[in-house]
Design a protein around this nucleic acid. Structure first.
Length: 503
RNA sequence: GCACCCUUAGCUCAGCAGGUAGAGCAUCUGACUCUUAAUCAGCAGGUCGCCGGUUCGAAUCCGGCAGGGUGCACCA
């Protein structure tokens, strides 16, 4: 659909277009090509000293407020690190002051001048030269800020409409500075994780997003079609089956940070595309991996936040290892006062019902134990904790415990009741793996559309022999949510999936 | 997928015993060379999400649709 901004009926937009045309008429190019900056808002404010000589600076940013008083004006511009006030006088910048009458909130300008402190105490830039860099043709929904008598910042007309914030994230980033902070932290968390993995000698690899056979998790996939080959291709739901192949091929350790796609419901903790880190290390088991996760999370937290201990949701959380380790099955047996693995289905149902699990007549044993665990143990976890000893019913992909019957070598890490990782001693017995695939195939025939597809090449790879391997998955979005205190996954994804608006 | 709630000026919101739309800010005109929600004076701005129904009359009541939010279900 063709859209011409000058056809917009809104008076504010019309007005801006008129300003744009008038500037053109006066020979002002409203969209410049570059501008040299030698400072920014945070730098100017941090390094200002009253007694020192006037410091000449060149800064650029978006006009956020304007206070015009005839022949002098104040404005705030916002750059990548904050805001700085600009002071303009007609007698000093002459003709450019006339042009400034055609500038608006939202325009991006370059300012050259010297730093000073105003009568009211604000460090500002006294402009000697003003340059329009980009004319903004749409009005910005700018909030008003004021500091009340108690020193608290009060925001009026905040840009708070969640739909608009997600659909037009660029506005959210301009208008809500805390949003920018979250995405800076997200980037730091990921780069810190990558640094840790690289330093550990684990190789970053890339595996296909488009896959003829999807696998590695129980989930429904997105399907697409390749025209030249005339075949369906699936967007990956997990990296697991591909990442284990290079381990078979001889790499001692591989990892990938990538988007996975699952064609399922959306809510506070689920977006159809999300970022996952998966890591596989040869000759290691889940015990080793627990230590590795402790170190990695500690490393990230220390690097990004400068401390191991900080507050999340009102709790002081200490990420310095070693983390507490608890046995799921021991905790549940203690609560149930019996060995739940030895109970019949009916006995198990009766026990978990006493702890508040609702039974609708069709939950599997694994699901019942999982809910029992969530209600009684998981929700009470505050400090970083590893839960180990999962029943085999709940973990079809993990290797059976070397000693304990009915248990697999698996752990999950929790903080404040929230899962932050999932890891196994990986199943590397091709016969066992093939049997589990065949069971999934049967479930698929029975109508379970989340059952996994048989991947013969993966089984073949295991038949050549995969060394003992520890595997780990960390949902990056959820880790970022936890560490940045964000309530919804949409607050840590720049462009969360949204339904398009029908015309 | 199910339930509940929301959608009024550019922004934030009021108006709902049904009587023909209102505030603050932003915009526009004018004044103002240290302001900071700048101030002062004046002007203007709306198919009340969309479609239909009830009614003499609907922003307001009813139904449907669209988009969004929250909770539940599904799912790591």
């Amino acid at each position: 659909m063709e859209h011409h901004i000058q056809d917009d009926v809104n008076v504010l937009i019309k007005r801006r277009f008129e300003e744009y045309e008038e500037l053109l008429k006066k020979g002002v190019q409203p969209f410049k090509y570059s501008f040299d900056v030698n400072s920014d808002s945070a730098d100017i404010i941090a390094n200002f000293k009253d007694e020192e000589e006037k410091r000449e600076v060149s800064v650029a940013g978006r006009i956020m407020t304007m206070r015009r008083m005839g022949k002098a004006s104040f404005a705030h511009i916002q750059d990548g690190r904050g805001k700085i006030q600009i002071y303009l006088r007609q007698d000093e910048i002459g003709e450019e002051y006339e042009n400034f009458r055609l500038y608006d909130i939202g325009d991006i300008i370059g300012v050259e001048g010297y730093v000073f402190r105003t009568k009211t105490g604000e460090v500002s830039v006294h402009a000697r030269k003003l340059t329009l860099l980009t004319k903004s043709l749409k009005p910005l929904p700018v909030p008003k800020e004021v500091v009340d008598e108690n020193g608290n910042k009060v925001v009026f007309d905040q840009f708070a409409d969640k739909e608009l914030r997600y659909r037009q994230r660029y506005l959210d980033l301009i208008l809500n500075p805390s949003v920018r902070d979250v995405f800076v932290l997200r980037s730091k968390i990921i780069s810190s994780m990558r640094r840790f993995l690289d330093q550990s000698g684990i190789l970053e690899v890339e595996t296909p997003v488009l896959q003829p056979i999807y696998g590695g998790a129980s989930a429904r996939p997105f399907v697409t079609h390749h025209n030249a080959l005339d075949i369906p291709l699936y967007l990956r739901i997990a990296d697991e089956l591909y990442l284990k192949r290079p381990i078979v091929g001889g790499f001692p350790g591989v990892y990938e940070i990538s988007k996975d796609f699952r064609n399922e419901g959306m809510d506070k903790t689920h977006n159809p595309e999300f970022t996952m880190m998966e890591c596989y290390v040869a000759y290691k088991d889940y015990e080793w991996m627990m230590n590795f996760v402790e170190e990695m999370v500690g490393f990230i937290v220390k690097e990004v936040f400068g401390t191991y201990e900080f507050e999340i949701e009102g709790n002081m959380i200490n990420f310095k290892g070693p983390w507490q380790r608890i046995s799921m099955i021991e905790e549940l047996n203690r609560l149930a006062e019996t060995d739940i693995l030895k109970l019949s289905d009916k006995e198990l149902i009766d026990v978990v019902k006493k702890f508040g699990v609702e039974y609708d007549g069709k939950k599997s044993r694994g699901k019942l134990i999982d809910e029992f665990f969530e209600l009684t143990v998981q929700n009470k976890i505050v400090q970083p904790t590893f839960v180990i000893d999962y029943p085999v019913e709940m973990s079809p992909l993990a290797k059976k415990h070397r000693e304990k019957a009915g248990i697999v070598e698996r752990f999950e890490g929790f903080v404040i009741g929230r899962e932050i990782c999932n890891a196994f001693s990986e199943l590397n017995d091709p016969i066992d793996q093939n049997e589990r695939f065949q069971e999934q195939a049967k479930a698929k025939e029975m109508g379970d559309d989340e059952a996994q597809i048989v991947d013969d090449d993966f089984v073949r790879a295991l038949e050549y022999g995969m060394p003992p391997t520890a595997g780990l998955g960390i949902g990056i979005d959820r880790l970022v949510m936890l560490l940045t205190n964000q309530p919804s996954i949409r607050d840590v994804i720049l462009f969360p999936t949204m339904k398009p608006i029908k015309q």
